[in-house]
Write a protein that binds this DNA or RNA. Structure first.
Lengths: 149, 149
DNA sequence: GTGATTTTGATGTATATGCACGCATATGAA
DNA sequence: TTCATATGCGTGCATATACATCAAAATCAC
């Protein structure tokens, strides 16, 4: 196969190229804003997910966000250190409940308006319908993983 | 604002949550396959981009892929070490042309069928139209960055 | 041509990501 | 009960990501 044909094919339709590039762009937009409240977008997401789900294990968080548990094990450390999240004591069995602390909730409430500003800006620029399309498409993509495995 | 309202709002429509989750899923799909030829999806993408664009600087690669030049500076190291990519000699000015070597092209040709298999599988599972929607939506998203900055 | 500005690049630091692996725990089978 | 299997967790390792900062080079203004 000609090299040029490979280049055009991959650049022309690789889903990974597009998705990863989009992820970089989106990450930068949200991180730019959230820096003001000293949170990364992942940390913000984790605070929300933990507050909402009160997960009985980090593995559960991982299922929802499609993050490997070993990654989460490390992602939680800055949040624990900052006192935004607590985990069940080490001794009580293997499963360790994850909980949002009062300080974590305070931080979340402080970060929410910042998130809202970026979110609204992104939706406005993309157009509501388009955001819906992305939502549907990405949700579908999320489901694909289990199908393929 | 009630905590529950924050949770539902963010989980319900955060573009970053959706995009990053999609990126993790997609990354895993492609990396699973490409492991066979000992490349990450980013490395594969870089080989294609460099081969095609023959970029006169890493900054140019970054523009196309929306990757920070400092990130690229490091991402290229494994590829240089493996002999897939060369850079203009250190002495000849600040800009250093990036080129795909013969070994890099060989590796790319070896990896292409592997990529093709995943790509076709993903497109089949998502459906062609849907992939187009994603493409359009993500391309639009890519443009947003410059609008907002 | 010289000086100011911009562009380009690399390193320090910190987070994010996940695989391989080993360990602890919980569950089920006999 | 005891052994085998499932599940849950953390560390070692490697890559990915980008900001702040410093240094070098290129470009522009005059």
């Amino acid at each position: 196969m000609k090299a040029d044909e490979i280049y055009e094919d991959v650049i022309g339709r690789c889903t990974a190229v597009r998705t990863l590039r989009a992820a970089r762009v989106v990450t930068r937009l949200y991180e730019d804003a959230l820096r003001e409240v000293d949170l990364t977008i992942t940390q913000f997401t984790l605070l929300v997910t933990i507050g909402r789900a009160k997960p009985e294990s980090i593995s559960k968080i991982g299922e929802y966000l499609s993050i490997d548990r070993t990654t989460l094990s490390r992602n939680l450390k800055p949040l624990e250190k900052a006192g935004f999240v607590t985990r069940g004591a080490e001794g009580e069995g293997r499963r360790r409940e994850v909980r949002l602390t009062r300080a974590g909730l305070t931080k979340l409430k402080q970060a929410y308006p910042v998130w809202l500003t970026v979110q609204n800006r992104v939706e406005k620029e993309l157009g509501g319908d388009e955001v819906d399309d992305i939502a549907v498409a990405l949700h579908r993509l999320h489901s694909v993983e289990s199908i393929l495995h």
